[in-house]
């Protein structure tokens, strides 16, 4: 089996349809939508099309969990023990089990929410963060940035389940949230251990994390206002070991990403 599997080689059955994030960015409707007053974007019952938006997001979580499973598996395989210590590989194997459970949960939750596997398209940018050639970069990009994002997403969905009185959604999201806190801790721990004597490597990894954090805040997807569909879960992030400064930095990156996204939409519209 080859080492370093590129995203285009991820194996899927015929139900899955892949999409490119660029198609979404370049959609000519974006500029027009930004001119509309369609109300706060935060997911909540009573907001426009909240059921279909929640179903769509749930499917995105499902495909994200598959890619997180694949990414953890590849990190267990791609490196020898000089690059990724035995204990790190054990953690990745543990994460495989957790992510496999999350895929199971997501499938059942999707069914509960009336969604079929493959109903919506799949973008592979989560797995792309798991393709970095340095395991420390993978841990920062996946465990700290993306699993951190998962904390925000699951917390938002849990709140949505709570306010909409959906006991199944709230129950499942709460369990997945607990696992993600563990995964973030795992990433932080390995970042510290593997870069203890290599500050440059540490800085490269943190830079990569910032890039991923910003990418996933694209167009204001995540933030701290009613305009952001996904809310930064400060309390849960603190439990996962993020410092207040780190959380503030993510909030700033999110705001920056929102402004840049807006500018890109305007530029595409005037082009």
């Amino acid at each position: 089996m080859r080492k370093q599997l590129p995203p285009e080689m991820l194996a899927r059955d015929s139900r899955f349809v892949r999409t490119s994030i660029m198609d979404q960015i370049l959609d000519p409707r974006n500029r027009k939508i930004s001119e509309r007053t369609i109300g706060p974007a935060k997911l909540a019952p009573g907001r426009p099309a909240s059921a279909d938006r929640a179903r769509n997001l749930m499917h995105g979580i499902f495909t994200g969990e598959i890619q997180a499973l694949e990414g953890a598996g590849r990190t267990a395989f791609d490196f020898d023990e000089t690059e990724a210590p035995f204990a790190l590989k054990l953690d990745m194997a543990r994460q495989c089990w957790d992510e496999a459970r999350h895929v199971e949960i997501s499938i059942k939750l999707g069914e509960w929410m009336g969604t079929e596997i493959g109903e919506f398209t799949e973008a592979t940018f989560l797995y792309e963060a798991a393709c970095a050639p340095d395991p420390v970069l993978r841990l920062c990009g996946v465990n700290r940035a993306l699993e951190g994002l998962a904390i925000d997403v699951f917390n938002t969905m849990k709140e949505f389940g709570d306010v909409s009185g959906d006991p199944v959604l709230e129950f499942c999201e709460d369990w997945m949230l607990a696992d993600e806190v563990t995964h973030v801790k795992m990433g932080s721990d390995w970042l510290r251990r593997l870069t203890a004597d290599d500050p440059e490597r540490r800085e490269r990894a943190l830079d990569f994390q910032r890039t991923v954090d910003k990418l996933f805040s694209l167009g204001g997807f995540r933030g701290e206002t009613e305009e952001n569909p996904i809310h930064l879960a400060r309390k849960m992030r603190e439990m996962a070991g993020f410092s207040t400064t780190e959380i503030d930095e993510i909030a700033e990156l999110s705001e920056l990403a929102r402004a840049e996204g807006q500018a890109a939409v305007e530029a595409a519209g005037s082009a």
């Binding site: 059921a51 179903r55 009336g114 909409s164 959906d166």
Partner: peptide, 16 residues
């Protein structure tokens, strides 16, 4: 008709 979708939309508005 995608009945499971309809049921979820319904439950969200009418209660679980």
């Amino acid at each position: 008709v995608r009945e499971p979708r309809r049921r979820y939309v319904y439950r969200l508005e009418c209660g679980f």
